[in-house]
């Protein structure tokens, strides 16, 4: 076990964990931030996507020992009042079905829009390729990203 101080959603947290513990399980089991989901554990489904200094990362394979001073953002910290343009677009298009993958989808999309204010279909396909939606809400995900891009 080792002690770490990590910055999550602009708050510092002192935690103890084995160095190989993926950030995902620190967030979920210790900090009780359960919006970040477990789907595969091998960075194949994207349900666990968070931002590390603004870059989309799969938290299921990223060990806590590698975080250092980097700033972690989770779905809970994406916006103050669920008013990120993506969250608003998600509401407008009623995107989710079961909802389980959606936080990961939104976090991947948010990282895309940070760098690309006008993503093409293929930009979206590329950025979102790592996020599986088992229910098949992909068409709405795409529409919502385009809508949000216009208002970023």
């Amino acid at each position: 076990m080792a002690d770490y101080t990590i910055k999550v959603n602009n708050e510092l947290h002192k935690i103890s964990a084995d160095p190989d513990t993926p950030i995902l399980w620190v967030l979920r089991d210790q900090l009780k931030l359960v919006g970040t989901k477990y789907g595969c554990g091998i960075a194949q489904c994207g349900a666990c996507t968070i931002h590390l200094d603004g870059v989309a990362m799969r938290s299921c394979v990223y060990p806590i020992s590698q975080v250092g001073d980097a700033s972690i953002t989770t779905i809970e910290g994406l916006s103050e009042q669920a008013n990120h343009p993506l969250q608003k677009a998600w509401v407008e298009y009623d995107v989710p079905q079961c909802g389980y993958c959606q936080a990961g989808q939104i976090m991947s999309a948010a990282a895309l829009l940070k760098d690309n204010r006008n993503p093409s279909d293929s930009d979206i396909d590329q950025a979102m390729h790592g996020n599986i939606c088992r229910c098949g809400t992909y068409l709405r995900v795409k529409k919502a990203i385009k809508k949000a891009a216009k208002s970023v």
């Binding site: 979920r28 089991d29 009780k32 931030l33 359960v34 919006g35 970040t36 989901k37 477990y38 989770t74 779905i75 809970e76 994406l78 669920a82 969250q87 998600w90 509401v91 009623d94 989710p96 909802g99 389980y100 959606q102 936080a103 939104i106």
Partner: peptide, 29 residues
């Protein structure tokens, strides 16, 4: 008439909704 999902806000803000999110006093894994 179209009505959006009643859990929509909770889904897009990452609130505990699912079985895997269950957390109870004294619970082990």
């Amino acid at each position: 008439k179209s009505q959006t999902n009643v859990d929509l806000q909770d889904i897009i803000t990452g609130k505990p909704l699912f079985g895997l999110d269950v957390d109870k006093e004294g619970m082990v894994y």
